[in-house]
């Protein structure tokens, strides 16, 4: 009899959780009690890492500091140019009377050292949650490319589905020629596949794939993956390796994309001044 009740309750919950989001508050409440377990499990690994960092020798630190200063100088130089290019891009878009989307904010989060999902699902936990304003479907990147998206945001932690998860798909575009397709995760580790690619698609080994911005989840223009070597007629078996270091990076960035396009009138007041007046008479 009790078994009957338990089974019925489980099935009811399964169905409800499958078809609606009404159970999310319950999950949030319970996660207040359960997130400490995640942090406790993660603690030994974190503290060993911190300890290793704190006993680094003075010379290593000096060397590292010098390298970082060099890298920072090089990056600053590149940014100087980038700013000019960005302005130019906005001006050109204004000429085409296009809207130009930009303005993304990031929040740095750290990976928690726990295995929450089964090994063939690629879902990881990070240490920032809804208390920092994280919400579902936000893009997560690292310094080298797209990592995944927020799968579930809990108060103190969130779950991130990596782009290599078999159930994850990301709209991409070949950077060289703008060819649009969808990259789907695979069961092979660290590989993306392209089930919707045409036989004669113009794609070469080494092509960089960037997010296309279609679908609305991922902002446009972030590097995703690089196409692996393949023999030309076999377009069905094309795979790509993510540019992000999915298995190594511990610092991830959660991206807030600004959905509202920046108005072009501020950039070029003379471009379309008489638009509203046409409609009035």
């Amino acid at each position: 009899m009790r078994l009957f009740v338990a089974v019925l309750a489980s099935i009811a919950l399964l169905t409800m959780d499958h078809i609606s989001v009404r159970l999310n508050p319950v999950r949030t409440t319970l996660s207040h009690a359960l997130d400490p377990i995640k942090y406790m499990v993660s603690l030994p690994v974190e503290s060993t890492r911190n300890f290793a960092a704190s006993v680094k020798s003075y010379n290593t630190l000096k060397e590292e500091n010098r390298k970082l200063a060099e890298a920072s100088a090089a990056n600053k130089l590149r940014l100087l140019k980038y700013e000019a290019l960005e302005k130019e891009n906005i001006r050109l878009h204004a000429l085409l009377e296009n809207s130009f989307k930009l303005g993304e904010q990031v929040l740095v989060a750290e990976l928690l050292s726990v295995n929450i999902a089964s090994p063939y699902e690629k879902i990881v936990a990070i240490n920032k949650g809804t208390r920092f304003g994280v919400h579902q479907q936000q893009m997560v990147v690292d310094a080298k490319g797209v990592v995944g998206q927020i799968y579930r945001a809990l108060p103190h932690s969130s779950e991130v589905m990596l782009i290599t998860d078999p159930n994850h798909a990301i709209p991409v575009q070949v950077n060289r020629n703008g060819l649009l397709t969808i990259a789907v995760g695979s069961s092979q580790p660290n590989k993306l596949t392209f089930p919707y690619l045409q036989e004669n698609a113009d794609i070469h080994p080494g092509d960089l794939l960037i997010t296309s911005g279609l679908g609305g989840t991922f902002p446009q223009g972030y590097p995703v993956a690089r196409v692996d070597n393949f023999t030309p007629p076999a377009n069905k078996q094309i795979t790509a390796t993510p540019t992000a270091e999915l298995d190594r990076s511990r610092e991830l960035m959660i991206v807030w994309s600004n959905k509202a396009p920046i108005s072009l009138t501020a950039e070029k007041p003379a471009a379309q001044p008489t638009e509203p007046e046409h409609n009035q008479p």
Binding site: S10, H18, S31, A117
Partner: peptide, 21 residues
Amino acid sequence: GILTDVLTGRLFGQYALAYSL
């Protein structure tokens, strides 16, 4: 089972059903 569902980010009731059986 329910707590494990939340901890591992599964559908509600998955582990609950298996464990109770």
